[in-house]
């Protein structure tokens, strides 16, 4: 599993949320290659292949990043900003998956170039359906950015 490229990067600090999300992903048959990071800094390390993740290759980005907004250290919007302002990471699809439906969050996220914004429904059944559809869309339906998209210049 380690040698295969990560398909989903889940950025989530709450263990309950992680468990429920993984449960939902598993139910959707999508939990095979999920990497979990617990704060914004770790997420950035992973994506820019530094610190703990310096062995990783920039050439193998995740297929999609599921990003919570409220995170310890660097928060979700900060992570989003850094990803989208760097040409190396800009093509990586980022989906905000958060409890918030505050307009300011939506506005800011889209201004920073988020690819999708999903509010986690309170109802678990709905949540599960949402996660499944989300995985299906980004990993199956959606054509990922080709290698060339990551080459700077």
């Amino acid at each position: 599993m380690a040698q295969l490229p990560v398909e989903i990067l889940l950025v989530e600090d709450n263990s309950d949320d992680i468990e429920l999300a993984l449960h939902a992903l598993r139910r959707g048959g999508l939990a095979n290659r999920v990497e979990i990071v617990r704060d914004g800094e770790q997420a950035l390390d992973f994506l820019f292949c530094r610190g703990l993740y310096r062995h990783r290759s920039l050439a193998q980005p995740p297929r999609v990043v599921l990003l919570d907004l409220k995170l310890p250290k660097a928060d979700g919007l900060q992570v989003l900003k850094e990803l989208k302002s760097n040409p190396v990471t800009r093509p990586i699809p980022v989906v905000i998956l958060t409890a918030s439906r505050e307009e300011q969050d939506l506005v800011r996220s889209y201004q920073l170039g988020v690819n999708s914004y999903i509010q986690k429904p309170v109802d678990f059944e709905q949540f599960r359906r949402t996660v499944k559809e989300l995985g299906m869309f980004w990993l199956v339906i959606n054509q990922p950015p080709p290698q060339a998209a990551f080459q700077v210049g």
């Binding site: 309950d16 949320d17 409220k70 439906r101 986690k120 429904p121």
Partner: peptide, 20 residues
């Protein structure tokens, strides 16, 4: 904003785990 982010989370957990 806090309510929006934080109050809903435990609620979701309760709903999620009771469902499970």
């Amino acid at each position: 904003y806090s309510v929006s982010h934080d109050l809903r989370s435990p609620l979701r957990h309760i709903a999620g785990f009771s469902q499970l």
